[in-house]
């Protein structure tokens, strides 16, 4: 008697039990997993906060003959729990192209992100990692240079005696100049 009852109710009962076990299990695993995942994805929701105007140098400190001068960009910066009112956030090369016109080249190589060095004796930029070379104006001066694009320029404004720029970092390794956000 019991056996016949069971045989009729069992498939449905079994399905319900399986579904419930699955749901309970998914819930038990899913909640901690999702809470971890959300927190782990936190950097995606944080903007870089770069792109503000920063005063980086005085105009007279940029040589009039067009020789690039290396300037450290100092501004307020947050790094996770740390907040500094004035820390170096990057390095740019400033170059005078006209009496009151300055061009800023980012020191980070557009190829793989190393620090591009200006070599006074060669009058050219050189990346010590994969030997990317750039002319004094930041353009690629050698077809064998592995960099996919010229050195990145930053928006500069000369305000009276002061040189201001909007500092940004850019993605490396791609032909297009795309700011890191």
């Amino acid at each position: 008697m019991d056996a016949t009852q069971d045989s009729g109710a069992q498939p449905r009962r079994r399905f319900l039990a399986e579904a419930a076990a699955g749901a309970v299990g998914a819930c038990c695993v899913g909640v901690p997993l999702a809470s971890g995942l959300v927190a782990w994805l936190d950097p995606l929701s944080k903007a870089s906060g770069s792109g503000d105007w920063i005063q980086v140098a005085s105009l007279s400190s940029v040589p009039t003959d067009g020789t690039p001068v290396r300037v450290t960009v100092v501004t307020g910066k947050s790094d996770a729990w740390t907040r500094d009112a004035a820390v170096p956030v990057g390095v740019v090369y400033l170059r005078r192209t006209a009496p009151a016109q300055v061009v800023a080249l980012h020191s980070v190589c557009p190829h793989a992100g190393c620090f591009v060095d200006y070599q006074t004796d060669r009058r050219a930029f050189f990346c010590p990692c994969h030997d990317s070379t750039f002319a004094v104006d930041g353009s690629i001066n050698d077809p064998r240079s592995p960099s996919p694009r010229p050195m990145d320029t930053l928006t500069v404004e000369v305000r009276g005696e002061a040189v201001w720029l909007r500092f940004q970092n850019f993605r490396s390794g791609i032909p297009a100049k795309v700011a890191l956000t």
């Binding site: 950097p43 903007a47 870089s48 996770a80 793989a112 970092n169 993605r171 390794g173 791609i174 956000t181």
Partner: peptide
């Protein structure tokens, strides 16, 4: 260099780079 290389992966590269680096810049 290694994390910049992650960034050149098509589509997901930039997000992946940000997750690995823990933000848009290197730090804590």
């Amino acid at each position: 260099v290694a994390t910049s290389l992650i960034g050149i992966v098509p589509l997901v590269g930039p997000s992946l780079q940000k997750l690995v680096v823990g933000g848009s810049d290197y730090g804590h």
